[in-house]
């Protein structure tokens, strides 16, 4: 067997190991109900912001506390708490991707990466938005 082949085999083994450990560290998309089942485990939610509830962010009091409510497609609701600032576009956001853990009744997000809104450049091609603009007088 050639050296190259041996090294390639070693690399393949390492690659598989890396991939397995990577897959192990992955979280999964869950619904709010199934996230509750996996309390304490890091999961990903794709949910709608419930704008009928209070979006609690008072930076004069605490700029590192931000809480809001979400509902998923099945109609389940949960409160979400984050320990960082409210993203700027949040008030208008509808669907958001959240990464965090269920802790009792609340879904806690620990990192700033844990909330993903669509960035402004993504709205520019959104015809509904432009249409709204056009139909307003």
């Amino acid at each position: 067997m050639k050296k190259t082949h041996i090294i390639i085999l070693i690399f393949i083994a390492i690659a598989i190991a890396a991939l397995v450990s990577f897959m192990g560290s992955l979280s999964t998309y869950e619904t709010i109900a199934s996230a509750r089942q996996k309390e304490g485990k890091s999961v990903t939610l794709y949910v709608n912001v419930d704008h009928s509830q209070v979006i609690d962010y008072d930076p004069a009091k605490d700029p590192n506390y931000f809480a809001f409510h979400v509902t998923d497609t099945l109609g389940n609701k949960t409160k979400v708490v984050c320990n960082f600032e409210k993203p700027y576009d949040f008030d208008k956001a509808e669907a958001v991707t959240l990464k965090g853990k269920m802790e009792g009744d609340i879904f806690r997000i620990s990192g700033r990466d844990g909330i993903l809104l669509k960035c402004p450049s993504k709205y520019k091609d959104d015809p509904n938005m432009a249409k709204k603009n056009l139909s307003q007088n």
């Binding site: 992955l26 998309y29 869950e30």
Partner: peptide, 22 residues
């Protein structure tokens, strides 16, 4: 991959470390 195999994986909350550690 999720779309093709109908799975529901996502990179965890710590996106950068998932890459950095490799």
């Amino acid at each position: 991959i999720n779309k093709i195999f109908n799975t529901n994986w996502s990179v965890g909350a710590d996106n950068t470390f998932a890459y950095n550690r490799v």
